[in-house]
Nucleic acid binder design. Structure first.
Length: 626
DNA sequence: GCCGGCCTAAACAACT
DNA sequence: CAGTTGTTTAGGCCGG
């Protein structure tokens, strides 16, 4: 695969360069990418500049791992990055990037703060309801309240708060820092002056929640340091305490002056010991955080809508929520990474296609339009998938949230996705519309561009013999003929050492272009607290290493459990009303397979229940998502 | 270069 | 009549 990766690198470099050039062409106006964040951030800065800056920062951030991998940044495409890193890994990387971004921001002149603002927007961007969960855990950190697990400085009590209250609250509590404080922080390197007003005004589109934003920014003065590796590693360096800063106690409403850490500790133990009052303050703080979360979620939704709206303008600069085409363009499934050994780094999830930098036209983006080069980067080739034998169930289970929230093209073929959707259904049968809904529910990517992928879905259903149309009383449903499906994909992979080696080589980091990064940042935020970098080894990995190459867990399980006979999807009982079948289905029911599948799937994720499906069907009509 | 897999696009028919 | 569903064909890219 190394060789293959190299060839892909070469092959896709032009595309990547396209993407990069589009970025640099925009950012060069502001000083050029190499200028980093410092070169063009003085004075007034527009949202566009902010974005560019952020992109540049992101770019710079990724260069580090790239160099670690002894590779030239320019030679790594975003798609390759995705190949190399699994979403959890990307997520971890993003964490680093965010930290770096924040740190970079600290180097910017007071008042410029663009990076942070952009970052905040990214935070907001990803706060869809599904993403909400992930951010919750991070919120305290985001707000500068310390690590979730650490001693978060409590804030005075507020039972119910509006934005105005929040602002006041922040002033009272986390101490909206005075200019002097900010300056002090700047000097000490501990914080930065994210001058609230200038920051908010620099992003007028978001001023609907400027209060909150301002407050967030203010608190990020404190909190941003939590994101920096420096802070992580020196969290408790001498003289540092989450509740102590600039010579005073930061316990809400306290502000007692303490000359040194010793004095502070003493003060802390005396004044803020474990008593009813402190406990109550902590409770209040929890409520505060909760309120903020709610508020943040709301505002984020609004921001999302705003950005989506602004997104539609063709001439608009690249927004943050670019469709993240990790698997790339026509590459929906550039690599059916349907079976990463979970204990190993994910192989390239997709081959290379640049992230489509620009969204063409209005809300609906045709897949082809997503790519600077319509076919330049083909779809994931199945053979790649075969090579990696990535179980879609496993991958989805692990990165469920990622795909739900990130506008990432899933690295699976339509066929495998459809199959998975159907097998995931309680009866292992779905109507076309249910399949649509599954797609939109599971993948943010499919919430756009519906005409294209729906057509593709229908095309695949009709084309592949493995999909069997069954008419019952309720109408037509689609099922999977596993026999045909497996025929379609003869397992060739037999756990070759090369594969394993290649998998490990996936540890190498690639580079991301800015849009990719932005999207990554966007999506990763929701994942920051949801997954580990590397999943423990699993049956999938074992199977993988033992050459049980199948494209998903269910397949693997099937092999194990069905005594050699592939379990058919249909049973006479199940399809008693069947009137028409495109192709004769096998009539054996193998429940063990589905059970195993379910077990596998639910192992790592909350299995979307049937109820969820229906709910979603009700709440999330496909077209509504357009 | 050929072949097969995959994706996208489009045309068309049948059905609702 | 419009929209949905299903089928089919064509063209292109990519990997083997």
């Amino acid at each position: 695969m190394m060789v293959e990766s190299a060839s892909e690198t070469i092959r896709t470099t032009p595309s990547n360069q396209n993407g990069v050039s589009s970025l640099s062409s925009q950012s060069d106006g502001g000083g050029g990418r190499e200028g980093g964040s410092n070169g063009d951030t003085n004075g007034e800065i527009s949202p566009v500049d902010l974005l560019h800056l952020q992109q540049q920062q992101v770019w710079l951030c990724v260069c580090v791992p790239v160099s670690m991998a002894m590779m030239t940044p320019q030679m790594i495409t975003p798609q390759q990055m995705q190949q190399i890193l699994s979403p959890p890994q990307l997520q971890a990387l993003l964490q680093q990037q965010q930290a770096l971004m924040l740190q970079q921001v600290t180097d910017e002149p007071p008042g410029s703060v663009p990076g942070l603002h952009v970052w905040m927007c990214l935070c907001s961007e990803v706060l869809t309801h599904t993403a909400y969960q992930g951010i919750l855990l991070q919120l305290p950190v985001l707000l500068g309240l310390g690590h979730p697990g650490s001693n978060a400085p409590p804030i005075p009590s507020r039972s119910a708060m509006g934005p105005g209250d929040l602002q006041q609250l922040w002033k009272e509590v986390s101490g909206v820092q005075s200019a002097e404080d900010a300056l002090k922080q700047q000097q000490t390197g501990e914080g930065l002056d994210l001058s609230t007003n200038s920051t908010s005004s620099s992003f007028p589109k978001a001023n609907t929640h400027s209060n909150l934003h301002s407050n967030l920014h203010n608190n990020l003065h404190n909190g941003q340091s939590h994101h920096t590796p420096k802070r992580d590693s020196h969290e408790e360096h001498a003289g540092s305490h989450p509740l102590y800063g600039h010579g005073e106690c930061k316990w809400p409403g306290c502000e007692a002056l303490c000359e040194d850490m010793g004095q502070f500790i003493k003060h802390l133990n005396n004044e803020h010991a474990l008593d009813d009052r402190s406990t109550a303050q902590c409770r209040v703080q929890m409520q505060v955080v909760q309120q903020l979360e709610i508020q943040l979620a709301k505002e984020s939704e609004r921001l999302q809508a705003m950005m989506t709206h602004l997104h539609m303008r063709p001439s608009e600069p690249k927004p943050f929520n670019q469709p993240l085409n990790l698997a790339s363009s026509g590459s929906l499934l550039k690599r059916e990474s349907e079976a990463y050994p979970e204990g190993l780094p994910h192989p390239p999830t997709s081959a290379a296609a640049p992230i489509t930098p620009l969204r063409q036209g209005p809300s609906v983006i045709s897949s082809s339009s997503l790519h600077s080069h319509p076919h330049g980067v083909g779809p994931i080739r199945r053979r790649n998938a075969d090579k990696f034998c990535t179980p879609i169930a496993s991958e989805l289970a692990q990165n469920c949230e990622f795909y739900k929230n990130a506008d990432v093209r899933p690295p699976f073929t339509y066929a495998s996705l459809i199959r998975h959707a159907i097998l995931e259904a309680p009866d292992r049968q779905l109507t076309l519309n249910e399949i649509y809904n599954w797609f939109t529910r599971m993948f943010a990517y499919f919430r756009r561009n519906t005409a294209t992928w729906k057509n593709a879905v229908r095309h695949n259903l009709s084309l592949h013999k493995c999909f069997v149309r069954v008419e019952n009383v309720k109408g037509a449903v689609w099922t999977v003929d596993e026999v045909e499906y497996q025929k379609r994909r003869p397992p060739k992979m037999t756990g070759s050492p090369t594969l394993v080696k290649n998998m490990i080589s996936g540890l190498g980091f690639g580079s991301l272009n800015a849009s990719y990064q932005a999207a990554l940042a966007e999506s990763s935020l929701t994942l920051l607290n949801s997954q580990g970098l590397v999943n423990p080894s699993s049956a999938a990995s074992l199977n993988m290493l033992h050459g049980m190459g199948h494209d998903d867990v269910s397949s693997t399980v099937e092999q194990v459990n069905s005594n050699g006979s592939c379990s058919p999807t249909l049973s006479p009982q199940q399809y008693g009303h069947q009137v028409h079948v495109k192709e004769e289905p096998t009539e054996v029911q193998d429940d063990s397979r589905s059970v195993s599948l379910m077990a596998t799937v639910t192992q790592n994720m909350a299995m979307p229940s049937d109820r969820d499906d229906h709910d979603l069907d009700d709440d999330l009509p496909t077209e509504e998502l357009e």
